[in-house]
Design a protein around this nucleic acid. Structure first.
Lengths: 200, 200
DNA sequence: CCTCGATCTAGACACTGTCAAGTTAATTGA
DNA sequence: TCAATTAACTTGACAGTGTCTAGATCGAGG
């Protein structure tokens, strides 16, 4: 949509425009700043236009959360790529760094995804994107699993640890630490954790 | 407030009545069912009455969250009392059971307390109650701490683990498991965790 | 008894999600 | 090519929300 295009009655790509507007509203004003009408306004359409793409606010929130899971998964994968994949423990720690970085960079989005807001989790947009991140978290635990049950336990252990740490960090401090400080604190807590790996 | 008392213009104890009404609304309709006007209605007063006790919805939410932290702390302490206090690891596991039980019994309250809703965390009502629970979590880690730093790491480790597990459980399943099932799943994940205790 | 302050009511305003009806534009089909 | 159909959007309305202002009522202290 360049400036040379004359404004059309049809927006063209309103659905993704509303999602982008929602992400922006979240990052600027927190959870409660995300409203259908504001998103419509930012996207440059009337207040009722979103209804044709999202049946309700819950649907828009779910689509935004799905976009959040994509960013989230990308953040973990980016940090994983930075380290040698031959060291399983380093890979897990890298994923955790990506986890924390995402939350610090997108606290309101993180809250929307995990904070208890009603979302439609099963259907395609959100279900697929969250499964992606789920899969990444499973992959990094594979080296530590002997069977299906130990994999599930390890995955839940790692996920619980990093998710709990991140959630509590966001809930406690009004002014979050920098991502570097948060990661430092997490890894300082973690050394004991490495004992339960079968060897690093 | 018995039925024999004639209704007075003054409610008498509107502040706590609104908090109780809020807890009820949360448990019946989730996060978004908690509104000032509904709480006022449940308490039997006009829509503007709450303003004299809570300057804004955020203040009411904070007071309700404070009440939640009291229940939360009581739930942990109740489980701790059930076990012999001579076994530090058993005490920690008991506290975690209380943590999970509270979340299963009060999912919306849990979301309000930790889910990213804006709250006034420093001031007396919420600040004091959350410090109480914080203190309980610190106490159960004392047997495993050699110094201030190791205590902080252990506390954060335990808290992150149980909080992350609980949050993810509430976020993932629309129909939560029973408290018993959730605790079983948590403790099944935990055995590896016991390795990092200096001895059970 | 009377005053005064605390408590609550009534009304209003802007904002919200959602619905219904109408308008515009793109696409399809003959 | 051009009319008809359908998708996309606008306008208007409604109930519900937080919050403000003004006024009414009650309880306690002088």
């Amino acid at each position: 949509m360049t400036a040379s295009e004359k404004p059309s009655h049809h927006h063209g790509n309103l659905r993704s425009a509303l999602i982008n507007a929602g992400v922006q509203l979240l990052s600027e004003g927190g959870l409660e700043a995300l409203t259908l009408r504001k998103a419509a306004s930012v996207a440059g359409v009337s207040h009722a236009a979103p209804a044709h793409h999202f049946a309700s606010l819950t649907n828009l929130r779910s689509a935004i959360a799905a976009a959040g899971f994509d960013i989230f998964d990308a953040s973990m994968k980016r940090e994983i790529k930075k380290v040698s994949s031959s060291n399983p423990s380093a890979v897990i720690r890298a994923a955790c760094r990506g986890y924390i970085i995402f939350a610090i960079d997108n606290p309101a989005l993180f809250s929307l995804m995990f904070g208890g807001t009603e979302l439609i989790r099963e259907e395609p947009p959100l279900g697929a994107s969250s499964s992606l991140a789920y899969e990444t978290l499973t992959q990094i635990c594979l080296p530590y699993s002997r069977d299906a049950k130990s994999l599930e336990n390890m995955r839940m252990l790692v996920w619980s640890l990093v998710h709990g740490f991140t959630s509590l960090m966001l809930a406690q401090q009004k002014n979050f630490p920098s991502a570097d400080d948060a990661i430092r604190q997490f890894e300082e807590m973690l050394p004991d954790f490495s004992k339960l790996q079968n060897g690093e």
